[in-house]
Design a binder for these strands. Structure first.
Length: 471
DNA sequence: TTACAGTCAATAGA
DNA sequence: TCTATTGACTGTAA
């Protein structure tokens, strides 16, 4: 059933965005079949287009006879199993149906394979994502770099993997993609040429229009709000706050926001994103630790270490990338002291270590790997502390769950404390500073202040009493 | 309401 | 030009 890959089926599945080689591809619409009102194309469509690059791709909607908005595309699932899925001829199953019927796939292996193929054939994530998955480059990058285990994925989250598997099922797909790439390039050159000869701006001008012009009169042009870029110090502060309390109360969030001079929504988003990304890192570690496929060295420190070494949350949350200690750290002393006898291994693992085999129902995979499930994470934290308080004893070196001491948030935060943000390249958000020296001292001051905030947070937590923030 | 999953899209770095 | 990162947003579930 290699759908589109193989032929007819193929037709109905590709995310269409890909349209004609020369045109702009607009991924979006992630959900293949879901009704995506505003989005121009459905992933389903784009997928399809892939199958037939320049062809007169039949109206994307065609397949959809049964289901709503897009009957969507039929996709094959797993190499073998997927192939066995029932497809009703052209109209086959919708991607969702396929996903639902798909056997468990090894997301790690799939992404690995995809990466290999893309690399070997010099195909970019953008093209692949937009044409095959109906996703943007950033999403593809993320997906390939940090695939979540199948059992942790929602149906929607499984779609890209099913698509990838389908794509991998047929070697000729690579060729098709390469053709597309060539065509795109050709089209690009053509455009470039024509625009140049026209004398007016090249693409950039076109693309740039939005911006430059938007600034102008255009009525309905709402200025895009600039992307917020948190300064290293701010991130550090947030990370520390996270170590103390991954689920801060609204009040705490407000206070943090006020202290950091950020919007509360930014702080909220940061916590959401951070939790979510940390979780993902943990999943990856599980896989890499071997608990995924082959049993075995489950979570050996070494494995973990190597991984975290570079991108794991550990790094992110623990500041593996931080450097110098800041003197203003005095305030953090407590935290450091509190840290669990140094049994840490710096990595976000503070959290995973915590996980107890307890079990939360997750399926096999998770059972084998002590990953903390959403529930367990929260339970761990909430069970011991009221939503309002900080995980009191955590600093003592135990994770909320109170079991394995290994890395604890405290230790992590401690490490963070030791390495305060100085040194990283000034983020765009940082205010331009007069001189390096001055900047440095300002930073130190700021860092000290942030530390102090955290320190108070911590104290408050241990006291269990709300504190008034005045820094 | 809150948290999360999944994404987008801006941006930085190579 | 491509990939990685990350703040923000949307939809969903509890």
């Amino acid at each position: 059933m290699q759908l589109w890959l193989n032929g007819e089926l193929g037709q109905s599945v590709l995310p269409s965005q890909v349209q004609q080689p020369g045109q702009e591809i607009t991924p979006k619409t992630s959900a293949s079949c879901s009704p995506a009102p505003e989005s121009p194309i459905s992933s389903a469509e784009s997928v399809k287009s892939l199958a037939e690059p320049s062809s007169q791709a039949p109206p994307a909607s065609e397949g959809s006879q049964d289901n709503p908005p897009e009957a969507c595309e039929p996709l094959p699932a797993d190499p073998q199993a997927l192939t066995a899925l029932p497809f009703a001829g052209q109209s086959a199953l919708s991607i969702q149906e396929l996903v639902a019927m798909s056997p468990e796939l090894d997301t790690y292996t799939i992404t690995k394979k995809v990466k290999e193929v893309l690399t070997d054939n010099n195909l970019g994530q953008r093209l692949f994502g937009e044409t095959i998955l109906g996703l943007t480059q950033g999403s593809v990058s993320d997906l390939l770099a940090r695939p979540k285990p199948w059992h942790k994925l929602s149906l929607k989250g499984r779609e890209p993997f099913v698509r990838m598997q389908l794509w991998l099922n047929d070697a000729s797909n690579v060729e098709k993609l390469m053709d597309m790439k060539r065509m795109e390039k050709k089209a690009y050159m053509k455009r470039r040429h024509s625009s140049v000869s026209d004398g007016h701006g090249s693409d950039s001008s076109v693309a740039g229009l939005d911006y430059s012009q938007s600034a102008s009169p255009q009525p309905q042009v709402q200025l895009k709000k600039p992307r917020v870029v948190l300064a290293p110090e701010e991130k550090e502060a947030l990370k520390r706050a996270y170590q103390l309390k991954p689920y801060p109360s609204p009040k705490t969030i407000e206070e943090l926001a006020a202290q950091l001079n950020l919007k509360t929504s930014t702080v909220i988003n940061w916590f959401h994103n951070y939790r979510s990304r940390i979780r993902r890192e943990l999943f990856i570690e599980e896989v890499q630790a071997g608990c995924h496929g082959q049993a075995g060295s489950s979570g050996s420190p070494s494995v973990r270490g190597s991984r975290t070494g570079h991108s794991s949350e550990g790094e992110s949350c623990d500041g593996g990338d931080l450097e110098a200690v800041d003197d203003g750290e005095a305030a953090m002393a407590d935290m450091q002291d509190a840290k669990p006898g140094d049994q840490k291994e710096t990595s976000h693992s503070g959290r995973d270590a915590t996980v107890s085999p307890s079990a939360d129902s997750e399926d096999e995979g998770s059972l084998k790997c002590p990953a903390r499930s959403r529930k367990s994470v929260r339970e761990a934290q909430e069970s011991e502390t009221s939503p309002e308080e900080f995980p009191k004893s955590q600093p003592a070196g135990q994770t909320a769950g109170g079991e394995e001491p290994s890395t604890s948030p405290a230790s992590t935060s401690a490490s963070i404390a030791e390495t305060t943000s100085v040194s990283r390249q000034p983020s765009s958000a940082a205010t331009p500073s007069p001189s390096p020296l001055r900047e440095n001292s300002l930073r130190r001051k700021k860092a000290a202040n942030l530390n102090s905030i955290i320190h108070r947070l911590e104290k408050a937590a241990s006291r269990e009493e709300p504190i008034e923030w005045e820094f």
